[in-house]
Nucleic acid binder design. Structure first.
Lengths: 252, 252
DNA sequence: ACGATTTTGTGAATGCCTTCACAAGGGCGT
DNA sequence: ACGCCCTTGTGAAGGCATTCACAAAATCGT
């Protein structure tokens, strides 16, 4: 059985795998194009979350040398049902060819564009604890279009040292750092007790997109997007389903 | 070594913060009590995801010495609207007192019970790369009811060493480890290329709840729950919203 | 050229989840 | 004891999202 994620709080989208499931929403954020506005380029939040999954699936296909895929095949790789996939892609426009499928390269390009990945977005990492270091060394970043442009911490013992070619900056220099590197997105990997303060500073400095790993609900102005990832919550959700399996299920 | 996932990709659910937003679903999984069945203790998936958030909020209140809270206040701390909170809690039963609010200790206890946290659930961590180490050292685990019971990797260079008092076991001993520690939940923090294999082994060993940090869609039997956390996907979702802000919005 | 075949794109139906709004319930002061 | 006031619990309404199912479109073989 599967359950839906929601815990780790972050968000993201996921793809359901086996059977239909309800998906909880997750993050704390935002809707951009109002659902009400038929603006020709409105993309549902649930769809945006899945676009990232499709992108990864397309990457796998491309590496396998596949030039074209049907919605059925791509859906299988992405772990969703084909009708959903087609509806999702239809929000981007008509990039498929009836009777043939989708051109892997073209579709990749379109999703990239839709997600705004064609323009470089500088990411700042705040907090160099265990998690922060793991994130800093995370190869998946670069391979999927992001590179950390700045690292910030408050501990004088590590400010000034370098990691991956970047000098660790002090949190008090946040304003300068944000402007200097033109930071668009910040990743908060500090203890819960410091998260809101760091968040406020980021907002003041002009950052409008935040990925929060601290187990706290952040208060931000309406124009700021926050997504959160809460590991303990994820485990608790799994625990819920697990306990039900043991109880009702019966055997096994 | 099985190290870094490469996708950090997974994700969870989130709670919405500021304004209404649509929440994408995410994981790949399932529903336990069928929505159709009015089984008196059915809890919607979206609600389960939020229970973890409420639990954290209650913890904060308890530490602040608060004995009772109204749905309004608790909702504020948890970052949701009060009607939603009340409806969520109503699935657990009637633990509030009209005109007064909810007893913090009692409600905490009830949510704990609902999530199955009263019984200990042993968690195994697979993969000791950057991320795995960060997770192993993550204090938030213990404080929220989980403790890592076993650590597993494939790198002979680290198998046998100890971390946090635990001996690192070899992946080939998975069956024994799962039985010995009575593992209920496994956290996959290995590279994407090894994820499906590790997952298959876990399923074979009898694990039915998996938290996947590798950026891959895992195939599992219907009785297994998988939740995923995909960092890159999270950033891509933020990127999408960020690009729209720049475009339409106009001035900052 | 044409028709068979394949696969997309999408209108319509269904189902969750969220939000609204209020009646029922319980404490507290007098 | 009574009544006022506060807050819960929940029926009903409204929104998104998912799924269905099929007509439209494009290739390929003959």
């Amino acid at each position: 059985m599967i359950s839906q994620p929601d815990g780790l709080d972050a968000v993201g989208a996921a793809a359901d795998q086996p059977r239909p499931a309800a998906a909880p929403d997750q993050s704390q954020a935002v809707a951009h194009g109002q659902p009400g506005l038929p603006g020709h380029d409105y993309v549902p939040e649930a769809t945006v979350a899945r676009l990232a999954v499709y992108l990864r699936a397309l990457l796998v296909l491309r590496e396998a040398g596949t030039a074209t895929v049907s919605s059925e095949s791509l859906a299988a790789v992405a772990g969703v049902n084909s009708a959903k996939l087609r509806k999702d892609l239809s929000y981007l426009g008509s990039y498929g060819v009836r009777g043939v499928g989708y051109d892997v390269a073209l579709l990749t390009e379109q999703i990239h564009k839709t997600l705004g990945l064609h323009e470089d977005r500088a990411v700042a990492l705040i907090g160099l604890g265990h998690l922060g270091r793991a994130l800093a060394g995370y190869a998946g970043f670069a391979s999927r279009g992001f590179q950390i442009a700045a690292i910030v911490d408050a501990d004088p013992a590590i400010v000034g040292s370098t990691l991956g070619g970047l000098r660790v900056e002090h949190i008090d220099d946040l304003d300068r750092v944000v402007k200097e590197y033109n930071i668009a997105i910040a990743v908060i990997a500090v203890p819960a007790s410091a998260a809101q303060d760091v968040c406020d500073r980021l907002v003041t400095a002009g950052v409008t997109s935040i990925l929060n790993f601290a187990p706290t609900v952040l208060s931000v102005p309406a124009h700021v997007d926050v997504r959160k990832v809460d590991l303990a919550a994820e485990l608790q959700i799994l625990s819920f389903h697990d306990s039900r399996k043991a109880a009702s299920g019966g055997a096994r």
